Simulated scan of single mutants.
Amino acid sequence: MRAVWLTEFGGPDVLVGGAAPEPVAGPGQVLVDVAFANITFVETQFRSGAPSPFKADLPVIPGNGVGGVVAAVGEGVDGSLLGTRVVTGMGGSGGYAERAVVDAAGLFAVPEGLGLDDAVALLADGRTATMMLRAAAPRTGERVLVEAAAGGVGTLLVQLAKAAGATVVAAAGGERKLELARELGADEVVDYGRPGWTDSVRAVDVVFDGVGGEIGRAAFDLLAKGGRMVSFGLASGEWAGIPEEKAAERGVTLVQPKPDPVLMREYTESALREAAAGRLRPVIGQRFPLERASDAHAAIETRATVGKTLLEVRS
């Protein structure tokens, strides 16, 4: 089968297409004919050799989230799953390939009315956005600042916070990204690529920090007493690193959601349901064929992307 291999850590060009052995479903597993694979910023970190949650020995087929159709089932798996549209995570390896073997218990059925590509786009980012929103619990009338508002998680947070009744301030870099945030319902937009960007933003009650670094620290300074800050990404390359003592002095809570497996599954299912009902729209900003996984990684790293980036494995 076709696959993309990582044989050494480095820049995007270390991702190389090639052949791989056909996987076979074992007990408790299913074989999925993969249609789409998602790409996350964490995967670009793993490829580069930077610290990441994913661990694997090289050579490896990278990739975590996939979506497709169940083509075969292993021993002990319900045969009615055959032909079902599903999305699932793979633990960080094996996703950039035509077929994947995964544990049946980790599957998510794609609801009727939801495209398989949209479901894949929601697999990681929908779970994260739902977890962040519930942890910070913005209330009607509160002001919420969403950093990286044109990214995969950020676009969903803009919509979820707006649906919760909050006034949404979307922070992103460049007019293209700000316009997308407006289309998704942001009440105010601000370009954090400009010096003194916080000067035009009134105090906020919640900060969703997807950038970290100087931008995350500047956003923290915008929080009013009783505010909450939850960090979900470090697009800058570092966390905001706000000391607990400094937050306490300001009367601000640094919210740290705990990734409970049962809750994480419910967050994913919630995002899929909301999208199927038309209340949540994943933004798929760019698509690349499987063989161009290196180009997809390069686009993400140069901040040239909006929303979610998908690999199209088969049509």
Rank of each mutant, 00 (worst) to 15 (best):
L116V: 02
L157G: 11
K258V: 13
I39L: 13
A181G: 08
V24G: 02
G11H: 07
D118C: 03
V313F: 02
G237I: 08
Q159T: 11
D118V: 05
V70E: 01
A271M: 12
G278K: 09
D191S: 08
V211S: 12
A100M: 15
V306T: 12
V168E: 06
P62Y: 02
T140E: 15
G68N: 04
V252F: 02
Y192C: 05
A296T: 02
A203R: 13
A299F: 06
A3H: 08
S231P: 04
M229E: 07
P21A: 06
L234Y: 10
V169Y: 13
R176L: 10
E269R: 14
G76P: 07
T44Q: 00
L6S: 00
A149G: 11
G173F: 08
T155I: 13
G154A: 07
D221Q: 13
R292P: 04
F9A: 14
V204R: 07
F220N: 03
A121P: 09
G49L: 03
E214K: 15
A248C: 00
E274T: 12
A97Q: 08
R314A: 08
V211L: 14
G213D: 08
G106N: 14
L157H: 14
V306P: 05
D125K: 10
E142I: 05
F41P: 07
G92N: 11
S52T: 02
A71P: 01
I61F: 01
R85W: 01
G233Q: 10
G226Q: 04
L263K: 09
V73R: 00
I61T: 13
A150I: 05
P12G: 01
T268S: 11
P111V: 12
A119Y: 06
A219V: 06
A163G: 14
K177I: 03
L145R: 08
Q256L: 10
A56G: 03
G113N: 03
A25P: 08
V70L: 04
L107V: 01
V189K: 01
A3E: 05
L116D: 02
K55A: 15
R85G: 05
P282Y: 11
G10Q: 00
G173D: 09
S270G: 10
E269N: 10
G196H: 10
A104L: 05
T305R: 00
E75H: 14
G151V: 09
